[in-house]
């Protein structure tokens, strides 16, 4: 599962720090800043540039810490993040033919949309919450998350492509010399 204990520790500490940042720092920002969900952005990047399994490891740790800190139903964040990752991965593997910026944007938007819809459903089922399709706060929140997710994708795509090309050239096909 983990090659070294160091990798495991890095995952735990990294996900804990990110969870605390998302829970405390970003929630204190003005409304436009509160729409930035670093956890979602990191999950999508791991899913897109690495693979589903490392993304799920991260979700397990990050979701666990977020569930401890928050007052939502315990496990809801882990479950919703994992489900969104599975949906996004399914589309990535079966419908997107390359690892371009457009593919990353598509995965990002799909993940964010799935995450929000699943969270609403979980709130409705587990907490007897209510939701109206015309709830403007839901659509504003979605729009804000799309903006930050899209911006992060555009800003970090090139550096991450360079980074991962350096260590894992899965973008290039090996051609055999005849």
């Amino acid at each position: 599962m983990f090659k070294t204990f160091g990798q495991f520790l890095f995952l735990l500490l990294g996900s804990l720090l990110l969870a605390v940042f998302q829970f405390s720092f970003f929630s204190a920002l003005p409304l436009w800043g509160q729409y930035l969900y670093p956890g979602i952005i990191v999950v999508v990047f791991i899913l897109f540039f690495v693979d589903l399994l490392p993304a799920l490891y991260f979700i397990l740790a990050f979701g666990f810490f977020l569930d401890i800190l928050s007052f939502q139903f315990f496990g809801v964040y882990s479950l919703v993040l994992a489900s969104s990752a599975l949906i996004a991965n399914f589309v990535l593997k079966n419908f997107l033919t390359n690892r371009s910026l457009y593919s990353l944007l598509a995965v990002m938007f799909l993940f964010i949309f799935s995450y929000n819809i699943l969270l609403v459903m979980a709130n409705f089922i587990l907490l007897n919450g209510s939701f109206k399709l015309g709830d403007i706060s839901f659509w504003l929140s979605l729009g804000g998350q799309f903006f930050w997710g899209g911006l992060s994708a555009v800003l970090f795509f090139s550096p991450l492509i360079f980074w991962f090309k350096k260590f894992k050239p899965f973008f290039l096909e090996k051609k055999q010399l005849v």
Binding site: L31, Q72, N116, V120, D135, L140
Partner: peptide, 12 residues
């Protein structure tokens, strides 16, 4: 130490 709501909105 934090603000929390189901959706990010000033209302809730």
């Amino acid at each position: 130490i934090a603000q929390e709501g189901l959706f990010t909105t000033a209302q809730r």
